[in-house]
Simulated assay, not measured.
Amino acid sequence: MGDAPAPRRLRWLGYAVAILGILVAAYFISDIALSRVEQPSYCPRCHEVRAQYLAWKVSSHSQINCLTCHGGDNSSLRRWARRRVEARNYIIHLLGKAKYPYQKNLVPEDQVCGECHSPNREVTPSGDLIIPHRKHTTVTGTPCAACHVDVVHLRAAKRLEVAIEKAGGQQEKAFQILAQELQHLGPKDRLPLMGACMGCHNGKKAPDKCAICHKKLDIPADHKAKDWVYNHGTKARQDIHYCVYCHAVLLDVARPGETITLLQGVRGNPFCVNCHSQRPVTHGPDFKLKHKFRAQEDLEGCLVCHDAEKRDKMSLRGVVRCSDCHHTPVTHPPNYRRIHPNIVMREGAGQCFKCHDTTSCSYCHTSGRVGLP
């Protein structure tokens, strides 16, 4: 067989050149297009990150490109890995499948912050705070973002949720409200919340004593009462803001400007959870029998720790829910205490132990109140 005719070879060569040209053009077109997408001015075109853009624009980092903090190194491999994500997110946006408000938090790594900030810098906070910055960065290895995660974006997604409620669900009006609010924020609004400190200073990972972080302590008079540890719940139910003014909630529990509920103030607060996740001294061995009386008097107090039903968020691990026992309400007749021995002997105690345990039996049968049958 001889060589293919020259016209055929030329035709295939033309196809190859055309395909190569298309690929080269696609490369440069996509590179130009994605480079455009990576500019901060392009961000507000997608409402998913418009709130974060508005916050960045009024921050001390407003002259720093987004990718300086969120892009990683600009090597070819890393750049195209990043752009695959950008292209995917852009398609999700075009299809209307993006979540809103945008909640994803692309936290910069320490080496990114280190390009501009020294970990050895001395910091003198205002007020009575003691924050040994160098110890946190070089000794304990605390990530920069653990304390400064919202120094630029100012909890924008949370603020937008509040603005949407104020705007009656109108997104464009909500963005206007958010932009005005961000313009009036002061330096204090950009400081880490106390909850960020308490994420580590929980008494286990780091000391939780007030004097560790504060030079001066103005302890309220009611805190000095001997029974304060047992009776502070009454004050908390009256005004939980009185408590969280010092014992601040975590960053992701309450939205800026939102009224704190009792449940948020306790369960979102490591200062409270450290105690509230343990069995209270009032819950003695016979508490399962007596708890109905406590619930009748103060059900709200019970629900600070316990949930009536299964809850997706804000639940304390290992704490019994009401529905664990009361999923099938049982109504006993008035004379049940007198006749229940016969029922147990006839049907067994399996049904009883769905709610009761042996302490329920021993409360009466081993205390001299009632003899064994």
Rank of each mutant, 00 (worst) to 15 (best):
Q278D: 04
H276Q: 07
A308R: 14
Q296I: 08
T259Q: 12
S323E: 14
T331K: 01
D324A: 13
K292Y: 12
L251R: 15
C275L: 03
C302E: 02
V319D: 01
F271D: 10
T328S: 12
V253N: 07
C302G: 02
D252Q: 13
Q278V: 00
P285T: 02
G265T: 08
K292D: 10
N274R: 15
R294W: 09
K310S: 06
T331V: 05
T328D: 12
Y336H: 06
P334A: 12
T282S: 10
G284L: 01
R255N: 15
P333C: 06
V253E: 15
R311K: 14
H306R: 05
L251D: 15
G301M: 08
S277E: 13
K288S: 14
H276F: 07
L262P: 00
P256V: 07
K313D: 15
T331Y: 01
H327W: 13
K310C: 03
P270Q: 06
Y336K: 00
V330Q: 04
P280T: 00
S315F: 14
T328M: 09
N269P: 06
L289K: 00
H326M: 10
L289T: 00
S315D: 12
Q296Y: 09
F271N: 05
G265D: 11
K310F: 11
N269Q: 04
I260S: 09
C305H: 02
C325M: 08
Y336D: 02
Q264V: 04
E258I: 11
G301E: 08
V320S: 10
D312R: 12
L251H: 11
R317D: 07
R255W: 12
A248E: 15
T282P: 01
K288F: 07
F271P: 01
L289Q: 00
V281A: 12
T261Q: 11
H291L: 08
R279H: 04
R311T: 06
V253D: 10
N274K: 13
C322N: 04
H332F: 15
A248Q: 15
V281E: 02
V249Y: 03
P329M: 11
P270N: 07
T331S: 02
T261C: 09
P329Y: 03
H327G: 07
I260E: 11
G301R: 03
A248H: 10
A308D: 11
L251S: 10
D286G: 01
H276P: 00
H276G: 04
L316S: 09
C322H: 05
V330F: 02
V281N: 01
T328G: 00
C302V: 04
N269D: 07
L316C: 10
L303E: 05
G257H: 09
L251W: 04
P334D: 12
R255M: 13
I260N: 08
R267W: 03
L250R: 15
L263D: 05
V330H: 03
N269L: 09
F293W: 05
L250H: 10
R255V: 04
V304W: 00
E300H: 03
S277R: 07
F271G: 03
V320T: 12
Y336T: 00
L303P: 00
E309H: 08
H306V: 01
K290D: 13
A254M: 02
H327R: 11
H326W: 06
E309Y: 13
P334V: 05
C275G: 04
N274M: 10
F293L: 13
P285E: 09
A295E: 10
L263Y: 05
K313S: 14
K290H: 14
V253T: 15
H326Y: 13
N274Y: 05
F271L: 12
